[in-house]
C-alpha cells in the first residue's frame, strides 16, 4: 500500500497538482462542500425536512448581522421559516446527488453506444450517431419539460415528489448521453486503427473483450475530462429545471428550487433567500469547472502551457 502511495506521490499527476494553486484551492473547496453537504444531517443546525421544528413566525428572518437577525438562524430564514444555511446544505446534497447520478447514467449510455458505434462502424455507426444528433438537437430543458409533463400527468404530483431524484437523474442522463457517445466514438476510431487492436484480434480475442479491456482504457482521459464538465452541467440543468418549477419540489429543495422559492421575495427585501444558494451554486460549479480544466491540461500533454 505504501508503495502505491509512493508511486502516486512521484507521479506527474501529483506533481502538477501541487504546483497549481488554482487546482489546490478548487480541490479543497470542492472537498469541503462535498463533505459538508453529505454530512448535512449531522452538522446542519436545523432539519429543514422536519416540519415540526419549522415555525412560520420565523419566516423571512434576515441574516444574523442585519437588524432583526436571530442568532439561531445564521443566514436568515426563508418564507416558510426554514433556516437558510441548513436548507442550503441539504439542497446541495440533493444537487450533487442528481449531478453525479445523471453523469453516471450519461457516461454509461454514452460509453456503451460510443464504443459500439466506433468499433463496429458502418450502418450501425450511422444509425447510432444520427440518433445522437437528433437527441442533441433537442435541448436538455425541452426533453425534461416534455418527459416531466408526461410523468406528472400519469402518476400525479404526490408520486412525483417521492420520485423526483431518480426521475431527474434519468431525464438529465438521457438528455446528455450524446456528449459521451461522440467523444468516445472519436477516440475509438483513432484507437482501433492501432496495431495493438489488430494484435488482440490475432491473439483471438472476441470483440467484447477488445472493446472493453483494450480500447476503453485508452479512451479514458477524454472521458474523465468531459465527466467533470458534465457534472457541472448536470447540476446546472437540475438547478435550471428546479428554477422553472420542474425539478425538486419545495419540500425537498435543491439549490435550484431554493433560488426559485426566494425569487418571489427578492423585491420585497428578503434577498438572502435567493442570493446565498445562488452564491453556493456558482462556487460549486466554478470549482468543478476549474478542476476539469486542470485535469484536461494534465491529461492532454499537447496542451502544455508555457
Amino acid at each position: 500500500m505504501s508503495t502505491k502511495w509512493q508511486q502516486f506521490k512521484n507521479s506527474y499527476f501529483f506533481h502538477s497538482f501541487i504546483h497549481d494553486k488554482v487546482a489546490i484551492v478548487s480541490f479543497v473547496v470542492l472537498v469541503m462542500l462535498v463533505v459538508c453537504s453529505f454530512s448535512a444531517p449531522i452538522i446542519a443546525p436545523h432539519d429543514p425536512y422536519d416540519t415540526t421544528t419549522i415555525d412560520v413566525l420565523d419566516a423571512e428572518t434576515p441574516p444574523i448581522w442585519m437588524e432583526g437577525g436571530n442568532p439561531n438562524f445564521l443566514l436568515g430564514t426563508d418564507a416558510q421559516g426554514r433556516d437558510i444555511l441548513s436548507t442550503m446544505l441539504y439542497g446541495m446534497r440533493v444537487s450533487l446527488l442528481i449531478g453525479l447520478g445523471a453523469v453516471f447514467l450519461q457516461a454509461f449510455l454514452g460509453v456503451v453506444i460510443g464504443l459500439i458505434a466506433g468499433y463496429f462502424g458502418g450502418k450501425l455507426d450511422s444509425l447510432l450517431m444520427r440518433l445522437a444528433d437528433v437527441q442533441l438537437s433537442f435541448s436538455t430543458l425541452m426533453v425534461a419539460i416534455f418527459i416531466s409533463a408526461i410523468f406528472q400527468a400519469f402518476f400525479g404530483i404526490n408520486k412525483y415528489e417521492e420520485l423526483a431524484v431518480p426521475f431527474l437523474i434519468i431525464v438529465i442522463g438521457l438528455a446528455e448521453w450524446p456528449q459521451y457517445a461522440r467523444t468516445v466514438r472519436a477516440s475509438v476510431l483513432a484507437e482501433k486503427k492501432k496495431e495493438y487492436v489488430e494484435a488482440a484480434k490475432v491473439i483471438g480475442f472476441g470483440s467484447g473483450r477488445i472493446m472493453w479491456k483494450h480500447i476503453l482504457p485508452n479512451t479514458l482521459s477524454p472521458i474523465l475530462v468531459i465527466s467533470t464538465i458534465q457534472v457541472a452541467n448536470a447540476i446546472m440543468s437540475e438547478a435550471a429545471l428546479s428554477f422553472l418549477g420542474l425539478g425538486m419540489p419545495v419540500t425537498k429543495p435543491s439549490l435550484g428550487s431554493l433560488i426559485n422559492s426566494g425569487f418571489e421575495y427578492i423585491f420585497s427585501g428578503s434577498w438572502w433567500i435567493t442570493i446565498f444558494p445562488g452564491i453556493l451554486l456558482v462556487i460549486l460549479i466554478l470549482v468543478i469547472n476549474l478542476l476539469g480544466d486542470w485535469l484536461r491540461d494534465v491529461l492532454n500533454p499537447k496542451l502544455y502551457k508555457g
Partner: peptide
C-alpha cells in the same frame, strides 16, 4: 511500439 496496448 504499436502492438502492445499502452495502458495494460
Amino acid at each position: 511500439m504499436m502492438t502492445l496496448n499502452p495502458v495494460l
